[in-house]
Design a protein around this nucleic acid. Structure first.
Lengths: 203, 203
DNA sequence: CCCTTATGTGGACAGTGACAACATCAAGGT
DNA sequence: ACCTTGATGTTGTCACTGTCCACATAAGGG
């Protein structure tokens, strides 16, 4: 199955459908990705999508991969802004930057964020978030190398960090923390990042 | 509008609908709460629900309140099991117990958990989770009274703790941590609780 | 006794995902 | 040149959903 469609009737429809779908996802989350609406926007009749995707879930999965990629890029952007040079403080700052990128993306693009994590029925499940996961893992490794985190404290730290930022993201998007102002948001975020950092680093 | 329905035709249908709906929610989450199926299970024709709820959302909201209550009870159950007597250690143990109750409920009843937090369009939004929130707040206050947490570290701790346990719950239910074994789950959970506790308490 | 009002029913309608039958068009062998 | 073949897109249909409407029923007050 070639990922690049040749200009048969439409000229790679598959990608066009994913793009239209991502547009809808950005605006309205997973629920907004309605097969018929995606087809409409792409200027094609409903059912056309069935030649490229077995299922609505399969299309959603493709869109989820796109969304996960956006998330990872947002994290990397924040990561690359860190200019601290002291190894330990640099690693800590990079961990915080990763978390900030994650949460900020979730708040800025709630639709895409939800799609990136929406549970699909089909298959053994998407590993699209692997990129973000590996990124977090490498930043945590930096902390160990810098001596800020003991190897013992390193185990399971991936999940703990991810859970913290993911939870805050969800609570801020449609949980009880959804009505916070920008300053409150940022304050709570820094508090969370500080708590995690203090909880992981050597005392 | 009286909250208690008298036995007119059916004998408080409203409650019966909420019960059937909660059953569906427990089995399949918010998506499973299908108005017509709820009516079917209650042995009543579709549209009957419209005499008691303006909307599917309103029914879902009622079910969400039930689910939130279950969640709070699960937390209280774990909380009451703590028998530590030293004030500081007792408060810390109670914080961990709260978190354990939260996560364990989410994993044991993912459907109800999702419903408790599903975002409803209607109204200025549900404050059903207030119970759990207040519970967490009081446990954190105990930590301050016991001297384990400084008043300065107390501010924003509610959101940080909640985010951590909520995030882990979500990741374990339908995120990348969904395929963990029971032991792995419990290990990750304790790691998270330890991280948060260490991040909050005086060093 | 009748009538008002709360409650439940049956029948619509638009919108959705999915399937099947049909149409179209590029490509390649003969 | 032609004709077959398979990939691609369309039309028509079905079951299901939430919601609205008109109607039926029953409880209880005048």
């Amino acid at each position: 199955m070639p990922t690049t469609e040749k200009p048969y009737h439409h000229g790679n429809l598959r990608q066009a459908l994913v793009d239209s779908g991502a547009e809808l996802a950005r605006a309205s989350g997973p629920e907004g990705v309605v097969l018929r609406e995606v087809a409409r926007r792409t200027g094609v009749s409903h059912n056309a999508a069935y030649r490229h995707f077995a299922d609505r879930d399969e299309l959603l999965g493709e869109i989820a991969a796109v969304a996960a990629d956006h998330l990872e890029r947002a994290m990397r952007t924040r990561l690359d802004e860190v200019d601290e040079t002291d190894p330990a403080r640099r690693a800590a700052a990079r961990l915080r930057a990763t978390g900030r990128g994650y949460i900020e993306f979730a708040v800025a693009e709630p639709g895409l964020f939800h799609v990136a994590f929406c549970p699909l029925e089909s298959g053994p499940h998407s590993k699209e978030d692997a990129g973000a996961y590996l990124l977090l893992g490498s930043v945590l490794d930096e902390l160990v190398e810098a001596g800020a985190v003991t190897p013992a404290d390193r185990v399971g730290a991936d999940a703990a960090c991810w859970a913290a930022v993911h939870g805050l993201s969800v609570l801020m998007i449609d949980g009880p923390l959804r009505d916070l102002t920008q300053e409150e948001r940022s304050g709570v975020m820094e508090k969370l990042l500080t708590t995690v950092e203090r909880g992981l680093t050597r005392r």
